[in-house]
Design a protein around this nucleic acid. Sequence first.
DNA 1: CTGATATAGTTCAATATTGAACTACATAGA
DNA 2: TCTATGTAGTTCAATATTGAACTATATCAG
Lengths: 149, 149
Amino acid sequence: MDMIAGMTAKDAWPLFLRAHAALTDAIESRLSAAELPSLLWYDALWALERAPDRRLRMSGLAQAMVLSRSHLTHLIGQLEKAGLVRRTQSPEDRRGTYAALTEKGATMRARMWPVYRKAIDELFARRLTPAQAMAMAAGFKRLLAGLRD
Amino acid sequence: MDMIAGMTAKDAWPLFLRAHAALTDAIESRLSAAELPSLLWYDALWALERAPDRRLRMSGLAQAMVLSRSHLTHLIGQLEKAGLVRRTQSPEDRRGTYAALTEKGATMRARMWPVYRKAIDELFARRLTPAQAMAMAAGFKRLLAGLRD
DNA sequence: CTGATATAGTTCAATATTGAACTACATAGA
DNA sequence: TCTATGTAGTTCAATATTGAACTATATCAG
């Protein structure tokens, strides 16, 4: 990894913010141009698809996605209306609700993935050296670990 | 820089998204707890403060902040109402508007900075090794350069 | 100069997002 | 058991954000 003169963590922060804004903007544009749902929907569908039995408790999903509870309620409402997710009551805790991926939801996620993958590849992965990518991944993990308190 | 087994740029992407969401959330909470305006306001004030004559054209500021034009119009409207910014007509181009930082705006930014700096420091800078921070800064620059086409 | 096209910024209506109640159920301690 | 307190999720009202018109000015080709 090359040293860049005088570059510190303080310099990295504003670049972090701009890179995030510009990248998510570009990716949303591509999804939208392909008449596909947003990144937010993708994230929810993918989180559910990876989960045991393809379902998660509302609060678990909210935490995984870093979303407020009311936002998640609304999001799942939309996904449910679109038939991509269905709610089921938790038998263990009668207050609890599961959001479960439907077949249609899995199909939609699979349809989105090629477009999303191509965007990640072209706009993100290809632009970084392997060393940069690894340093970022390791760094992000540390940042996330630091916030779980 | 340590190698982490099997870590690739593809792994870095979802971590990037989550780290951004969690960090901005945490920072907004601190600003809000200190009864200070949002990160968005800070960004606008700081962009103006650095600019020649402490002012920028609306479109220039929108581009620098990665914001839609209508969003920027609204944001500057709020900042103006709060007395932190004032609009002036461009003499060269009568369609053009400058957003100019007021003294009150500079004072507010200065008041926000200690809280913001402390958050960046504790939640971001301190958690990264110098090598990680440099790799990130360099990587973000490349990502941003790749998007300007 | 004139008409055609492009650019700067705003407005407006639709949609997204947030936080503060609120409802229902669960858990712990007397 | 009974009360108190905590947790899961939703609702509602307030605020933020977006994209599609729209207004005004600029630029360019003839």
